[in-house]
Design a protein around this nucleic acid. Structure first.
Length: 351
RNA sequence: AGGGAUAUAGCCAAGCCGGUUAAGGCACAGGACUUUGACUCCUGCAUUCGCUGGUUCAAAUCCAGCUAUCCCUG
């Protein structure tokens, strides 16, 4: 039987993945990653649930402490991004640098070919290249967060949940009487359950200093508690007295200012992507049409992808898109509808 | 000092030729959604209408006085 190394958190998704791998005839091995033990401001997380699931399925569980790598590869860049005014996406980095990286490394040590996770995504293979493809359950689709994976990681990955809906996954776990069948959805930043602001404050030990809101003309509109707490497109927490809904349109960390404006000011016709990751590994030579997402949970929008110098990609939207936030990942999809797959992605740098 | 205007929740603001539970927006709080930040959605949010009296079966809505603020003329 083919062995597979599965990342198991103990939640319903990874548990059901384990079950599905067994049913599919694989011989799965499970590994639990401890990511933020002892991190200031981070919640407690234990492998208890993972152990429970493994004992229910007669699988041996291995526990790996990755907290050092996690802090170096995910938490530090995350905090630094915020301190420089960006809006980072830690999950994209975590998948590449931590989860999939550690899975591959351990699998190699064990002589195992395949790795697996409980992500809602499929693998699309074309011309010998493996792409993350949207999950059947479009509501849960997580292919966006896999845009930064390498070909080496994808070519060995199995996503058992890609063909199932969330409801089916729960039903599968339920029918096998898995104790995790009713586990809550994971959500928000896993290591910052009280929000990124308070996490960064406790992690750095520094509180934000107050600054001012300004309008597009630079006129002062009021005071805020620190520019770090705001992100492009945000509406809440900007104060009152405007008589209308008003949004963050820009921010400046050096001056500690946050610019406010109307919703229409948030729309941009294109963005430039930095630190581009092309799934195939082959940087495009000519412009092409594709679909893009500027954030998780946004439907793909048509755009033209234009290769630029320095390995950058320019995205020109067919219709203006709202609130492109520097630091977020712009992800490019090819293919249509439910079968769309990730061509690549990069970090939004400006507009 | 005269003349005029306005006073409704944290802010803006309907209602104001009287009639059951005082619109709405912003802000705020809680929730939903969510492996990122946002957005979005749902719910809540003045027993009370500057104050004090009066008229009336009934007043935020009419009347009087007081107070505050704004504008104009000295």
């Amino acid at each position: 039987m083919e062995e597979v190394l599965l990342a198991l958190s103990g939640g319903v998704d990874s548990s059901a993945s384990l079950l599905l791998l067994k049913k599919a005839g694989y011989s799965p091995r499970a590994i639990y990653f401890s990511l933020y033990a002892g991190l200031p401001g981070a919640p407690k997380a234990t492998p208890d649930e993972a152990y429970k699931v493994c004992s229910e399925l007669g699988i041996e569980l291995e526990v790996a402490d990755l907290s050092e790598q996690f802090e170096e590869e995910v938490v530090n860049p995350f905090v630094n991004a915020y301190l420089t005014g960006l809006t980072p996406n830690p999950c994209v980095w975590c998948n590449r640098k931590i989860k999939f990286s550690a899975l591959i490394k351990r699998a190699d040590e064990l002589g195992i070919k395949y790795i697996a996770t409980g992500h809602y995504s499929r693998i699309f293979k074309k011309d010998g290249i493996f792409y993350p493809q949207k999950a059947i359950d479009e509501q849960k689709d997580q292919s966006y967060a896999l845009c930064n994976l390498t070909q080496g990681q994808l070519s060995r990955a199995i996503f058992p949940l890609g063909e199932y809906t969330k409801a089916e996954v729960r039903a599968i776990a339920e029918s096998s009487s898995l104790s995790s069948a009713y586990s809550a959805e994971s959500q928000d930043i896993c290591f910052a359950t009280d929000g990124y602001r308070s996490f960064i404050e406790s992690y750095t030990g520094k509180t934000q200093s107050p600054g001012i809101f300004i309008d597009s003309g630079g006129n002062a509109l009021g005071k805020h508690s620190g520019a770090l707490s705001y992100t492009i497109g945000q509406r809440r927490g900007v104060g009152s007295g405007f008589g209308k809904r008003i949004y963050v349109t820009d921010k400046n960390m050096e001056k500690n200012t946050v610019t406010l404006g109307d919703e229409q000011d948030l729309y941009s016709s294109g963005v430039t992507l930095n630190r581009v990751n092309i799934i195939s590994g082959k940087f495009p030579e000519t412009p092409f049409k594709a679909k893009v997402k500027l954030r998780y949970r946004q439907k793909e929008s048509p755009a033209t992808v234009i290769p630029e110098d320095g390995g950058r990609l320019r995205l020109e939207f067919e219709a203006p898109l709202r609130a492109a936030a520097p630091g977020q990942w712009g992800v490019i999809y090819l293919g249509e509808g439910k079968d769309a797959y990730v061509y690549g992605g990069g970090i939004i740098s400006n507009y």
